[in-house]
Design a protein around this nucleic acid. Structure first.
Lengths: 260, 260
DNA sequence: CGGCAACTTGACAATGCTCAACGCGGGTGG
DNA sequence: CCACCCGCGTTGAGCATTGTCAAGTTGCCG
């Protein structure tokens, strides 16, 4: 696993969907460069515009969002390392959402032509298609989350999804993660008020489900959290390696964290 | 419009995205056959399954949906004539949603191979890509709807979207439409209770915004409805023919408070 | 004519929002 | 170096929107 920790986040993510050859990996390595640093709380793509190139996050967290006329914001999806601002299809007349960093990010500006260099590499193309489906499924899941789950369930589901996605990248062992997301961000994801998010987190801390000091998130009782949120990870379309084996309460996978 | 009313709904929809040649139209005509009749309230694709072929609706209304453990249902999108159950990409391991008819429908069962016969027809491929983006944008819009709009706004937005989409197919003049959707269906779309949907519709009828007798829907004050719902149709990615001319009063910021 | 699905309405309950206030820490400018 | 400020977190009180429950009507179809 030490070698795999060196892989770039895009490769890691796509390998969670489909097996890739060494040539595929080499091509992806070439794609993920040059990297540009962007501070936190910065716009990457403005709402309603049609950016010249596609942004690929390789470090840090960003989000797609929409602003409401009254100034409120709805986050449409989290973007974590390995995620594109647009996915594998002809761009539309104009984007219906914006993209902004949450934390400081490392970003690759991908010319659309350059992204097409993957054509002729069926495994990568297949992985990108599954990736595309996975993202749509996440949006559907968020619609369910906001529409049909109460405050506690929403936060629980969101945390479960987040940690699984990080685990794919080797950024979490499935229980602990660096979580620099503010309560305001969580509120914008779940369509709750900041106050309500705060209360939900307080209750979860008090019942020993999780702890959150600064940006250090620890999920002490992941199974409980999954049950609360009704989290069933099949929609993420991941390989079986990343999905739970049913019946195992504490499925610890040793050492996914490079430095701790 | 008489000749164009003869076109099949798929052709009409795709032409709202991109211009098509006569050969393209002929190909699409061949695709939309044979047609099978399905009664209302019937499953077309079961949740969690991976159907052998793609369903294309050519008549009637259907929906994508998810069932919750407590038996409630969330409708993820309306399917109207011209809509596919899956869109233009490699199918996933399993579907995270089901597809069911709402009214009696006419359905084409499309072998995946057969759908690939459009390759080599760039205009159709382009239209399908835009179509795909449009559908995703609709899902995002629904997430906004459920997350950030109150009951009146949600219903207003849903009705606006529905009528515009029907207009593209020639199934509405933009003000009147056959609307065989029950209040229960609307509740499942908007994440409201049936009771609340009923109250919203009652208020709208009383304030003269719309009337609804049986399945005959008339929108008397479309601009007001758009303002209430904050409906801005750009996300549908339609040709300018189908979009509002800017500068009309309908483009103000939406009313935040409900009508009464 | 009976039955069922959809629609309708009122009364009540609850989930989560708004408002307001305060703590805390890191950064910044004087 | 210190004071201030701003973003973030925290908490309580009151209340609005919407859900739940219950009951009754309508209308269609067999």
């Amino acid at each position: 696993m030490a070698a795999s920790a060196m892989k770039n986040p895009l490769t890691r993510k796509l390998q969670a969907f489909t097996a890739l050859s060494r040539e595929d990996e080499a091509l992806l390595d070439r794609l993920v460069t040059p990297v540009r640093a962007v501070a936190g709380r910065n716009e990457l793509v403005l709402e309603g515009q049609r950016p010249a190139d596609i942004k690929l996050i390789v470090g840090g967290f960003a989000c797609r969002y929409r602003s409401m006329p009254d100034g409120r914001r709805q986050i449409l999806s989290f973007m974590i390392p390995g995620d594109f601002s647009e996915l594998y299809r002809t761009p539309p007349r104009s984007m219906d959402y914006g993209v902004a960093t949450i934390t400081a990010c490392q970003v690759v500006d991908l010319d659309r032509k350059r992204l097409e260099s993957v054509s002729g590499h069926p495994a990568i193309e297949e992985a990108l298609r599954v990736c595309s489906f996975s993202e749509e499924a996440i949006t559907r899941e968020w619609l369910i989350n906001v529409g049909r789950r109460n405050a506690t369930e929403r936060v629980a589901h969101l945390l479960c999804e987040f940690v699984v996605r990080l685990q794919v990248l080797g950024l979490s062992d499935g229980h602990r993660a660096d979580f620099p997301i503010t309560e305001g961000d969580l509120a914008d994801c779940t369509s709750l008020s900041v106050v309500q998010v705060n209360r939900v987190l307080r209750d979860m801390k008090q019942s020993g489900i999780l702890s959150l000091n600064g940006s250090d998130l620890v999920l002490h009782d992941l199974d409980r959290l999954k049950r609360i949120g009704g989290f069933l990870p099949a929609y993420l379309q991941l390989n079986d390696d990343f999905l739970d084996v049913p019946g195992k309460p504490g499925h610890d996978r040793p050492d996914r964290r490079p430095t701790a």
